[in-house]
């Protein structure tokens, strides 16, 4: 890796510090892959161990899950557009698309909270059975990541409004965009292996 400062290209890559921070964040994401793999493994092993609680096939609603999936998918897209705007040098475009991303993320979170409350009313909680414990831990950990991401992005928006685009702020925006896309990657696997398989089997 070249240590010298670059004169051209995206702002976030220009300083070697910026490139190192992005590299470090990818290492964090690699660790997150392993974290979620343990939760997926727990879920897979406990699949079907619902004891006397309702089964996932009885509770999962395709419409709610589809709305959540599309909210997160579209927010991942708008987050990509935000970085695209940033690389064009448009602070206004960046802030606008970042806010749209946040609103979609909040919508996702709202649906997830609605879903959990709905399940609780149907008599399914964290304590119901081994299966439902692993379900709530897996989806809840993902939801917690989304919540943290929203808080992080709000702080970053304040910094962007105050300082504008610098190598430091653009590096931070780039890193949160990686985080946000990564959450969508995790959700793809939750959507497939938890909801779709839960409704099929």
């Amino acid at each position: 890796m070249s240590a010298h400062e670059l004169k051209s290209g995206p702002l976030e890559y220009r300083s070697s510090q910026g490139r190192m921070n992005i590299l470090g964040f990818w290492i964090f994401l690699a660790a997150e892959i392993v974290l979620f793999s343990t939760l997926f493994a727990t879920y897979a092993v406990l699949f079907g161990r619902t004891a006397n609680a309702p089964t996932p096939g009885e509770l999962f609603e395709p419409s709610t899950v589809l709305v959540m999936t599309f909210l997160l998918l579209i927010s991942s897209f708008t987050c990509g557009i935000a970085v695209h705007e940033m690389r064009r040098g448009s602070v206004k475009g960046l802030i606008t698309w970042l806010i749209i991303t946040l609103v979609l993320g909040l919508g996702f979170l709202g649906f997830e909270i609605y879903e959990f409350i709905h399940y609780t009313h149907e008599g399914v909680t964290l304590q119901s059975s081994a299966y439902w414990s692993s379900f709530f831990i897996l989806t809840g950990t993902h939801g917690l990541h989304v919540t943290l991401g929203i808080g992080w992005a709000i702080l970053l928006l304040i910094q962007l409004a105050k300082r504008g685009l610098t190598p430091v702020t653009s590096r931070k925006v780039f890193i949160i965009s990686l985080y946000w896309h990564f959450l969508d990657v995790i959700w793809i696997f939750i959507f497939t292996s938890v909801y779709l398989i839960g409704m099929v089997v």
Partner: peptide, 21 residues
């Protein structure tokens, strides 16, 4: 970025661990 911003070995390592787990 002169392809210096993604630690391919680490990501591969993470994916292999995830698959094994």
């Amino acid at each position: 970025s002169h392809n210096g911003h993604v630690p391919w070995n680490m990501i591969f390592h993470g994916l292999v661990l995830a698959a094994i787990v």
